[in-house]
């Protein structure tokens, strides 16, 4: 099983998300996370999908998604020339005497997490990072009782300055091959 991050630029129209998720479910593709948000062009939405499967399946995913009428482009965000980030919010049971150690944990340079809520015996911590950093942090705080976890799934961008130009060119010339 391999994993790939796909970035889709799609028309910001009703039903587009259901068309994409429907495609994944009916063809039995594995989706690990999906995030969506508008781009700098309000008519277009960026969707980041983390999918897993063998190479043939991943190739089919890319082609089948590209075939959807609402999809302007599909590109693989390769790890070497992209950045990925995921937001984690984690609620821990933290008794007053444990607070200091949790605070110390969040302040380490490795994680740079933020405490965003403190209750009498709980804390919510927020952390942004790659999926593996988020996984590591969850493992680290596992010694406390984890009450709830909310993860957003990853968003990603390619490095460099070519991205917006790229979108505009695609709009003028149609889909890339």
């Amino acid at each position: 099983m391999n994993k790939k991050v796909f970035q889709l630029i799609v028309e910001n129209s009703s039903g587009v998300l259901s068309r994409i998720s429907g495609l994944f479910s009916r063809r039995g593709y594995n989706i690990e996370s999906i995030t969506a948000g508008v781009t700098s062009d309000p008519g277009l939405t960026r969707i980041t999908i983390v999918a897993s499967g063998d190479d043939d399946i991943l190739e089919q995913i890319e082609k089948q998604v590209a075939k959807l009428i609402d999809v302007l482009s599909v590109v693989e965000l390769k790890a070497e020339d992209s950045v990925y980030r995921e937001l984690l919010m984690i609620k821990l049971r933290v008794l007053p005497e444990q607070r200091a150690s949790v605070v110390a944990l969040t302040e380490t340079d490795v994680f740079r997490a933020n405490i965003i809520d403190v209750g009498p015996d709980s804390m919510i911590i927020e952390l942004t990072g790659t999926q593996s950093k988020v996984d590591d942090f969850i493992a680290l705080v596992d010694c406390y009782e984890i009450i709830e976890i909310a993860r957003t799934g990853i968003a990603g961008l390619t490095r460099g300055t070519d991205k917006l130009v790229h979108i505009n060119e695609m709009i003028q010339s149609g889909k890339p091959d």
Partner: peptide
Amino acid sequence: VDPAEIGKNVGPTIPLV
């Protein structure tokens, strides 16, 4: 005409869309 059909069931030597 459909690029998704090429390589779906069999990997061709020469794909032609």
